[in-house]
């Protein structure tokens, strides 16, 4: 588990993990509705992380704990 920050850019969500300096686009997010947001997220670099599904944050950027499922770190 690590702290990550999710931001919004003109091309969609951006993933940032300060501890590892990983900044990448999020190509897919399992749940992306106001009521349910998060789940498995896939990064442009192939990495896969998991965020406990939750109510979508009111605004971005938003810091949240994420678990690494697979991929480069």
């Amino acid at each position: 588990m690590a702290n990550i920050m999710i931001r919004k850019s003109d091309k969609g969500y951006v993933f940032y993990m300060p501890k590892r300096d990983i900044e990448d686009s999020i190509v897919s997010m399992e749940f992306d509705s106001p009521e349910k947001w998060g789940g498995e997220i896939k990064l442009g670099n192939g990495g896969i992380y998991y965020i406990e599904p939750q109510v979508a944050p009111e605004r971005l950027p938003y810091s949240v704990r994420a678990k690494r499922i697979d991929g480069v770190e």
Binding site: M5, R7, Y16, P18, R59, P61, Y62
Partner: peptide
């Protein structure tokens, strides 16, 4: 780091 923090906290 502080820029990202201010983005999140103060928009």
């Amino acid at each position: 780091y502080i820029a990202r923090h201010m983005e999140e906290k103060y928009n």
